[in-house]
């Protein structure tokens, strides 16, 4: 029984901060909810799926979901390849391991807002990147170019988070028994073969985790499209679901629509995660055959 008392505060917290808002979210999404002063009673009529229809008819919503996919297409391969390789190399280092580990991890602990400041400077028109590229500099410039703005955001987030994933992969690499590598090298397998035949498969679970976390990060993007590209611009090219929820639900005073997008976003995440799991099973089945 004492366990119940020890966890009671946490349980209360989970109810107040998670359970109640999640239920409220569903409720608000089917109401014509109006912001009112605290204590004032305003009618909040039931409107069925009207908010959902309104949300779905907005081309920006589709754009924002496609932007998550574009984000994943850039972020996941880069993170998996670089994270795995850097971790495998890091595990073999005999000297300066701590230095390199820290160097990779520093961007992860740096505030997004600070990072956004530097990328704003780097990728502005006539910024350092343009100077390096010379006549190859894109026109229109990076952050106002509807084809490139999302790429810049995806690269920024990948860069910022990579150190975290390197540490996750490193934990996995350190668990692989040395005897596997010794046996492989007796069989004449070089470092590249060893990496592909031993390291990559052993880290499969971490790769699944990386993909899942990337999906959540993509859905949650807010500060980058809000500040780096001036509110999801150009023309919604960097619009994210989180930013859209904020614009509809808070700025434009339509909390019902904002809450409905929240529900749709959850479904979308479950769908993409499910598709990922299905694809994995298919690949595994083919490998087994």
């Amino acid at each position: 029984m004492i366990g119940l008392y020890l966890t009671a505060p946490y349980l209360v917290y989970l109810v107040i901060v998670y359970a109640v808002p999640i239920i409220q979210g569903f409720r608000i999404s089917v109401l014509d909810y109006v912001y009112a002063a605290p204590g004032a009673s305003v009618p909040q009529p039931f409107v069925g799926l009207k908010n959902y229809r309104k949300a779905l008819s907005d081309p920006l919503l589709r754009r924002s979901f496609l932007n998550i996919l574009e984000f994943l297409a850039i972020n996941v391969p880069l993170t998996v390849i670089l994270g795995m390789t850097l971790a495998a190399v890091l595990a073999k280092l005999s000297r300066m391991k701590t230095f390199f580990r820290s160097a990779f991890f520093v961007p992860y602990v740096t505030a997004s807002i600070a990072v956004i400041g530097v990328w704003y400077f780097l990728f502005s028109q006539g910024g350092l990147i343009d100077h390096v590229l010379g006549s190859w500099a894109p026109n229109p410039s990076w952050l106002v170019n509807s084809k490139l703005a999302m790429v810049v955001i995806a690269l920024e987030v990948t860069w910022k988070q990579l150190g975290f994933y390197v540490l996750l992969y490193l934990a996995g690499v350190l668990l692989i028994p040395d005897s596997l590598y010794e046996a492989a090298s007796i069989d004449g397998a070089g470092p590249v073969r060893q990496f592909r035949a031993i390291t990559v498969p052993a880290l499969r679970n971490i790769t699944i985790l990386v993909t899942t976390l990337a999906l959540i990060v993509g859905a949650n993007l807010f500060a980058e499209p809000y500040l780096l590209t001036g509110g999801g611009g150009p023309n919604g090219a960097t619009m994210s679901p989180a930013l859209l929820i904020y614009q509809k639900g808070v700025e434009q005073g339509e909390p019902g629509v904002g809450a409905a997008i929240g529900v749709l976003l959850t479904l979308f995440i479950l769908l993409v995660a499910g598709a990922g799991a299905g694809a994995r099973r298919l690949v595994q089945a083919r490998e087994a055959a």
Binding site: Y18, V20, P21, Q24, Y35, A219, N220, A242, G249, L265
Partner: peptide, 20 residues
Amino acid sequence: GLILVLVLPFQVMMIPLYIL
């Protein structure tokens, strides 16, 4: 509940939590 909140995207509850 602990596992659920670990994977739940916060933005899903942004509007209801803000209102609450």
